[in-house]
Design a protein around this nucleic acid. Structure first.
Lengths: 341, 341
DNA sequence: AACAATTATTTAATCGTTTAAACAAATTTA
DNA sequence: TAAATTTGTTTAAACGATTAAATAATTGTT
């Protein structure tokens, strides 16, 4: 038989069995192990099953102050980078019976603030945050309020907090090293104009590696686009870079979105990749597989990152004031865009 | 000054101002308009502001039986189709102060059931569901329990429920018509082996249109792959189809995932698109833009769909037992894969 | 048999709101 | 001016769970 709307609560079971709600609660939560007579316990369990009892999580939360929910704040859930991450986190959280609520900030500090407000207002147990530039104070406030959180992808050097992300400096270095080894002499970088640490680390790694591999200031070049920019701006930057004299013989893209638009543009030119121009991009760029010379890219260990971030958050919930910071290594996946063998 | 962890509640304000909690509640919720003296009301509001009061949504929910949360169940949030939809729904829900929780079923009825259980256990006010094959009974049960929901993308003909999706029959028809008009004579379809109505509608539209445009049973061909299949299976199906004698001069892909893998494979062949083979795919396939002949595709009006679904759900929450079903029209976006002009 | 110790169960407060109903004070009506 | 009405505020029960503390029942000890 189906239950007809009206939900069964502890009291209903208690009445049916003829005991107090306390006892029912103890039994169903396996508290007071051994202190409860076997047959009463069985009767209660049986009744709960029969009546299709489902505990009211809201009531539970009110009492226990835990919601078994974590909030995840990203720049945009429709960005494959974040949706892939979200999926991993969803699975990981589910394993430990947590539910995830997701919000997109659009790199907008006000939206970001509103999300924090909404999520804490809903008493999430903790947050996984890919923060936006200019939100450091908000994060600090979060710390004061003792809301547990883990920063993901984006790091704030001035903030002592949990963090899981990529070693971006090293990643860029790897890319440049690879290009240098392939004999490229003039490398361009298209990146974001941003205060975000991880973005600047990509630039710093690029510059230092260029220096190290003897690519002097006059032979590399950098263009920066707005972090919310659409194709036009990215295409313009690419165009500019390519029309330099002498023209670059390699380009590094600081994100999947930049790569996507830049490559679409490059695809319309008569330029030959990799012969005339080698390309490397950050992030999994499956969607660039169909380019005639699939891109060499820096693969982020998304799975490990998602799992680790979730683990740090959930493990830190009851215990600890420990701060954990993890920088993971990017893997350079070499494909045709940087030349064969 | 920051609040130091301990949260402010109604009682704190009441004590500070020297009134009852009831009065505070009335004021802060704008109830009993006019019945409350102006200055007391102002004092209460001021105190709330000063003390940085944030209502405890959990307590509120317990009393009101509303959580201002909707659950969204999709096959896989990391699939761009669903993550785009999720983003639209997030924004739409946010406008009306709802929060969205998301779960991925992986097309697995058990996982699906668990999500339903989790979400209703958390007292979501309603659900947006892209259901999985074999879950009709679960949906019916949901109806008995009077949990409001709207089906998205996937329709169950045996179920009288709210629904927003695509007119898939018509979409396929459009694709075939376009191909026929381009003079294609032998059209292949790669689709899923599935009980899902929308998938079968795509097939039905394909078949009927073929008949209508004089493409007889011996000149069209269909291959079906598992709905959870990875590239290997899709590639095998493509291979088979292309090695038919006579070979097809056009292919229609029933989803973005199928298209993606099939095109990657076709890209390795010496076949010329569109000269020797025209291609059409369902869904926005931005990621196929870099194929040398960007794909003609059937564009789903995702934005309208997401908005409409959310609207139907939220509007139906307090009122109505009305059932709304919306079939939206796909737009055929013609690009190079089906020939120029 | 009296008392202590153990085992089993209940009582009742609590979490932070909402809201019907009761009450009190001020104002109007007859 | 007493009664009726309006206005302003409080009381107290509820929502559905958890849990410390109290109590009751049983068993063990001497």
């Amino acid at each position: 038989m189906a239950d007809h709307g009206k939900k069964v609560c502890l009291k209903d079971i208690a009445e049916k069995v003829g005991v107090s709600t306390a006892l029912v609660s103890y039994v169903l939560n396996n508290k007071k192990e051994g202190r409860i007579s076997k047959d009463v316990a069985e009767k209660i369990r049986e009744a709960a099953r029969l009546m299709n009892y489902r505990p009211n999580q809201i009531a539970k939360s009110l009492k226990t102050n835990r919601t078994d929910t974590i909030g995840m704040i990203v720049a945009d859930i429709s960005n494959p980078y974040f949706s892939s991450l979200a999926r991993i986190i969803e699975d990981e959280a589910d394993k430990r019976n947590y539910t995830v609520i997701i919000g997109s900030s659009d790199e907008n500090p006000e939206k970001f603030a509103k999300l924090i407000e909404t999520f804490t207002g809903r008493n999430v147990d903790g947050l996984l945050i890919a923060a936006t530039a200019g939100t450091e104070d908000q994060l600090r406030q979060l710390q004061e309020q003792k809301v547990p959180f883990v920063l993901v992808d984006r790091y704030f050097p001035g903030l002592t907090s949990n963090y899981v992300g990529l070693d971006n400096y090293n990643a860029s270095w790897k890319a440049v090293q690879h290009l240098a080894e392939k004999g490229r002499q003039r490398i361009g970088l298209i990146t974001y104009e941003s205060q975000l640490f991880h973005i600047n680390e990509r630039k710093r790694g690029f510059l230092e590696a260029c220096k190290y591999f003897g690519i002097s200031a006059r032979r590399h070049m950098i263009r920066q686009v707005g972090i919310k920019s659409y194709s036009a701006e990215i295409i313009a930057a690419t165009k500019e870079l390519l029309s330099a004299d002498p023209a670059p013989d390699a380009l590094l893209f600081a994100s999947n979105r930049i790569a996507e638009h830049a490559v679409k543009y490059i695809n319309t030119l008569s330029l030959k990749v990799p012969d005339q121009l080698a390309l490397v991009s950050f992030d999994e760029t499956e969607c660039l597989d169909l380019f005639y010379a699939p891109l060499t890219y820096l693969r982020q260990p998304l799975k490990e990152m998602g799992k680790e971030a979730t683990r740090i958050l959930l493990d830190g919930l009851d215990s600890s004031v420990r701060v954990t910071q993890v920088n993971m290594e990017a893997e350079l996946v070499v494909r045709q865009s940087t030349g064969t063998t």
